[in-house]
Amino acid sequence: MASDRASSNRPLSPHLQIWRWTPTMAASISHRATGAALYAGTILLSIWVFALAQGESVYAPIAGFIGSPVGVLILFGYVWALLFHTLNGLRHLYWDMGRGFDIENARRSAWLVFLASLVLAIVIVASGVSAR
C-alpha cells in the first residue's frame, strides 16, 4: 500500500522534531503524549481494581508499591496527565464552539493549562502523601 501513498502523494503527519517550539505546539504534543500515557494509566487502574477484588494478599504488595518513591512518582505522572489532558480537553471543546482560537488566546490558554495542571497535581499528590 506504500506505493499507493507515493502515487497519490498523500503525506504522513509531520513528526515531532520538525516543529519550532511554541507553547501551543507543546500543549498539542502534550495532549497526545498524556493521552497515550493515560491509556496505560487506565490499564493500571483496572489492574488495581482487580487486585482490590482479589483480596488483601494480592492487594497489599500493589498498595505497597504505590506507596514507594517510584510508585508515588508514577502516581504523580498519572494525576498530572489526567489533569493536563482534562484541562487541555476543555480548551479543545472551547475551540470546537468557535471561540478562543486566535493566536494570543491560544497561547495564553496553553500556558494556563500547563500551570494549572502542574499546581493541582502537586497539591493533590502532596496532600495524599501527607495524609498517610
Binding site: L52, G55, E56, Y59, A60, A63, G67, V79, L82, L83, T86, I124, S127, G128, V129, A131, R132
Partner: peptide
C-alpha cells in the same frame, strides 16, 4: 475525572 481525583485524595493511604 473530577470525581476520581476527589476519590483519590479522599482515600489516600486507606487500607484494603
Amino acid at each position: 475525572v473530577i470525581w476520581f481525583l476527589w476519590g483519590l485524595s479522599a482515600h489516600a493511604g486507606a487500607g484494603h
